[in-house]
């Protein structure tokens, strides 16, 4: 079925796109940058991180670009002082929830959260840190899950379910108690459904999932091939 062509405005510029696309997809297709953390091309979009918020004319709430479908005639603003401030707040709240000690993290220098804080000009955090006591799961033969660095973006959950088809990961509990767990909350090393493919590690934007044997700053990841594989297999939601 041919999809209807729609036209919208992004930061004043006329962009044509097709019905069913999200604001983020339309923006990216026309070369416009909207910051994202939980979005990974090829996986379904969940709107977890709120970094991609945009303003849509006539709507007084900020909307996540990654989950909001385009509508004909929509006028979208992707950059403004208000959006910059709310994006900074989103990053600061991620930083206070866990123990992101960049200086001793395997992903230092290669972390999407760290890079995002830097590009948004977050030089400090205005909210009190929570300093939760969190476990590190070293039970898997090849990989590590460090809850201290997890931002609950669910990229690992989605890549495992949607690309690998193994469904190892899920989130339990709510709000500040929410945690990533493997296979009904068992140790990762005991998860019989894990195929050891490592896609979750590559998809993870922070140092929460890493390969064993990497010291501080050594964990460099690649997720472009995950996106390519997902798109190629037509996984995209």
């Amino acid at each position: 079925m041919p999809q209807r062509v729609l036209s919208i405005r992004i930061d004043g510029e006329l962009v044509s796109t097709t019905e069913g696309k999200t604001i983020l997809e339309a923006a990216r297709a026309s070369g416009k940058y909207i910051p994202t953390l939980c979005y990974l091309e090829g996986l379904s979009a969940v709107g977890a991180c709120r970094l991609c918020i945009v303003q849509v004319a006539g709507i007084d709430r900020l909307l996540p670009a990654c989950t909001t479908p385009v509508q004909n005639g929509m006028s979208v603003t992707t950059k403004s002082p208000k959006l910059a401030e709310y994006r900074r707040i989103a990053v600061e709240l991620l930083l206070v929830e866990r123990n992101h000690v960049c200086a001793v993290c395997v992903s230092n220098g290669h972390c999407e959260l760290q890079a995002m804080a830097c590009s948004l000009g977050v030089t400090h955090v205005r909210y009190p840190y929570d300093y939760p006591k969190l476990p590190v799961d070293m039970s898997h033969e090849r990989f590590v899950l460090d809850q201290n660095r997890c931002i609950l973006c669910t990229r690992c959950v989605r890549v495992c379910a949607e690309v690998e088809g193994a469904h190892v990961w899920e989130i339990i509990s709510r709000g500040i108690q929410a945690r990533l767990v493997s296979e009904l909350n068992q140790a990762w090393g005991d998860a019989a459904s894990c195929t050891n493919c490592g896609k979750c590690v590559q998809a993870c934007p922070t140092g929460a999932l890493s390969e064993k044997g990497h010291a501080v700053e050594e964990m460099v990841k690649r997720n472009d091939n995950i996106s390519a594989l997902a798109v190629w297999r037509g996984v995209e939601a």
């Binding site: 992101h100 230092n108 804080a117 830097c118 000009g121 030089t123």
Partner: peptide, 9 residues
């Protein structure tokens, strides 16, 4: 203007 010059870590 620290802009994107200074980062955590």
């Amino acid at each position: 203007d620290l802009g994107s010059k200074a980062r955590f870590g």
